[in-house]
């Protein structure tokens, strides 16, 4: 659906994105996981035609490059930094951006109501956005991207800085949108979000895409072994790496009295650690 080929972008001496290639398949939720400053937003910017890459190409399959206005109609973007008019109401924001995308009259009205309902802002539709909570602004920021009903969504950290309730609302909504057959690129620095939502995940750090695949593929190839952590009377915690934690636990219990036991399965955090030598969140 969306193919990025050998993208490169530098700001002065800093290379924000370096030789990045990836293909997002139709109907999948593709996660771009990486710490702050990894180059996620720059990648999204190039993918939507906002930032001109120094080299490389972006192509929306069968339609063209997003530098072409007609191609941009197929994309819905929720930028990382909130992009809303505080002095307009939620409804006015949606209607304005709807008109910008060419919606009018009943289509515009119906679509506005539907989108407000989707993000749970119908009761506050007439209120100025300036008075919204952070979570409500986030939801509206995402709602704007949905107005023109695009087949492809690019959501740049759509849960940044929100309360748990709005966060769950947004995650549910993304799942629902995916269920409608939309193709979604979802960037985040939360590995739980990536593993909960995404069909495939690309791990990005310092502008480079380090690995790509389903979560289990990534864990299998880069996550390392599971760890069985055992605590015994009078001793500290013992960590045992193993491919078969259940059998390992049986061994542990056979060897004597145990105060506690825990299995640490590898996850995307371990994948990131093994790929970069650093943790996702420092």
């Amino acid at each position: 659906m969306l193919r990025l080929t050998q993208l490169r972008k530098s700001f002065g001496a800093l290379t924000a994105v370096d030789s990045l290639s990836l293909e997002v398949r139709r109907g999948e939720v593709f996660g771009l996981l990486g710490p702050n400053g990894a180059g996620k937003s720059t990648t999204i910017g190039m993918a939507v035609g906002l930032i001109a890459p120094d080299s490389g190409t972006v192509e929306l399959e069968g339609v063209g490059a997003p530098t072409d206005a007609a191609v941009r109609k197929h994309l819905g973007v929720a930028p990382q930094s909130l992009a809303l008019y505080d002095d307009l109401s939620g409804e006015e924001n949606l209607k304005f951006f709807g008109r910008v995308y060419g919606l009018a009259s009943t289509v515009l009205r119906d679509r506005t109501s539907a989108v407000l309902e989707m993000v749970g802002l119908s009761p506050r539709r007439k209120d100025r956005v300036g008075g919204y909570s952070g979570g409500m602004k986030r939801r509206l920021n995402l709602a704007v991207a949905l107005m023109h009903d695009p087949p492809m969504l690019l959501l740049d950290e759509p849960t940044a800085g929100v309360d748990p309730q709005s966060r769950n609302n947004i995650l549910d909504l993304v799942r629902q949108l995916a269920g409608q057959g939309r193709t979604i690129i979802y960037t985040t620095h939360y590995m739980e979000e990536a593993s909960r939502l995404c069909d495939r995940v690309g791990i990005i750090d310092r502008g480079r895409l380090l690995a790509m695949g389903t979560v289990s593929e990534l864990v299998a190839s880069h996550g390392g072994k599971s760890v069985v952590a055992v605590t015994r009377e009078g001793q500290g915690e013992e960590r045992i790496e193993t491919d078969d934690p259940v059998r390992e636990i049986a061994h542990v219990f056979a060897a004597g009295t145990v105060q506690g036991v825990r299995i640490d399965r590898p996850d995307l955090e371990s994948v990131f650690l093994s790929l970069t030598g650093r943790r996702l969140r420092d």
Binding site: P79, A83, F97
Partner: peptide, 9 residues
């Protein structure tokens, strides 16, 4: 919001 307008058609 200018960014939103520039990514619009």
């Amino acid at each position: 919001t200018l960014m939103r307008l520039t990514v619009s058609p």
